[in-house]
Nucleic acid binder design. Structure first.
Lengths: 228, 228
DNA sequence: ACGACAGTACGGCCGCCGCCGAAATATTCA
DNA sequence: TGAATATTTCGGCGGCGGCCGTACTGTCGT
């Protein structure tokens, strides 16, 4: 049962609260320093250092030195996908007492998921795209229609660059707060990037929650018919 | 950080070797008794009982009494998907010494993945379907073409019943041994069931590995052009 | 060169949790 | 009813592993 051994090994790495916090903080695809992660994990830097070493050894994280800092990021989209799928199970979990903090509320509204948009915003955009026939999620995996490609192009997305990334182009990604799919993959990432470039969305400092700017409010309403 | 707490909670449940063995044994979607799972986990029934209680409390497993037996199965396809995604990360993992046992070899050749086909067999079938234009996995999620639907119908699959299941109809599922997608979702399950019904495949006792019958060898060659 | 800061080893403490043996409860079969 | 089997509960043992304090190695700025 060598496979199950590996299964347990990876899962137990995620299974520690401090490490789960670290991974969770990296879910937006950014790279953070060891000290920042120590703060996110809620333990001392020494302890964090040990955790980071374990996660890096297991190839869940990738570290790059830059001066006297060490930036850590998730090793691959596969890792982000794994964390998402665990989240999806976790929120379905036992009917426990679940006090929803203000932070959680912000996360539910709009956040990044690895590098694409999630939360009510992400699902809303996906819904709008589906409704207009730009995207088909219906019963199968997901596909962009020719009309959808044209729409994306006009929206300012470099489709050729997105395809070149080597990642899955269009992936439905189960949103753990909305329990419905939003747009992932390279296209989802490109769409998110474009929204940032347009100044429609800004990252909350130290968090995955996103804020929608006034311009974003207008733009999203016009482009996708969203009223937020 | 209430979300990360749940993340760690679920992951740590999977992170114990005994429990990972249990979950792994249930990955084929069947329901097994506590004693069978004790054997699979490699621990005594008492210990297993404790593990099963934890997994059931967390809604990873679902238990149903039947006489003096208690049958346990995965609580939902979501759980199976989570386990798959952890596996996917695990096999990409560190370049450790990985002795491939005979059992592993059998698993790599053909196995069930929750309730559809995986391993070289599963990937081979998916490839054949793609090659003939019955299925499109290329860059996006995955979709069955009209021709594919007709093929499935002719193959003896009740498409209406498959659609009614409430599950995703056609899902690409990353094969952790082949590292390429095979056919999952309700359609994948229906296809697997049909192969069993035709007597092409038989389950290995106490395991997810599958054996291909002589009739199966002929049938798979004829229907999908597979030479195994 | 020196101090400040980021990050990393080392050592010891402590608590959680998995493990089993023994025994209790439940259900079937004779 | 009584024996057999399936499963659970309880109690105690043992070890792994996370935690921090202390101390060491780099790297930057002045």
């Amino acid at each position: 049962m060598t496979f199950a051994v590996n299964l347990a090994e990876i899962a137990s790495l995620v299974g520690d609260p401090a490490r789960a916090n670290i991974l969770s903080a990296l879910m937006d695809g950014r790279a953070l320093t060891a000290t920042e992660l120590a703060y996110a994990a809620g333990v001392t830097p020494q302890t964090t250092s040990g955790h980071l070493a374990k996660l890096t050894d297991a190839r869940l994280l990738f570290a790059m030195r830059q001066g006297r800092h060490r930036y850590y990021r998730l090793a691959s989209p596969l890792v982000a996908q794994m964390l998402e799928s665990i989240m999806a199970v976790a929120v379905e979990g036992p009917p426990r007492y679940r006090p929803s903090s203000k932070l959680d509320e912000a996360l539910k509204a709009a956040r990044t998921c690895y590098n694409h948009l999630a939360g009510r915003l992400g699902v809303g955009i996906a819904d709008a795209l589906c409704e207009r026939g730009h995207l088909v999620f219906a019963e199968e995996g997901g596909e962009v229609t020719p009309g959808g490609l044209a729409f994306m192009q006009e929206f300012g997305i470099d489709l050729a660059a997105a395809r070149r990334r080597g990642r899955v182009f269009c992936r439905p990604c189960l949103d753990w707060s909305e329990r419905r799919p939003h747009l992932g993959g390279a296209l989802g990432a490109a769409l998110a990037t474009r929204c940032f470039d347009l100044g429609w969305l800004t990252r909350n400092r130290s968090g995955r929650a996103l804020a929608i700017t006034p311009a974003g409010r207008r733009g999203l309403a016009e482009a996708f018919g969203l009223s937020l």
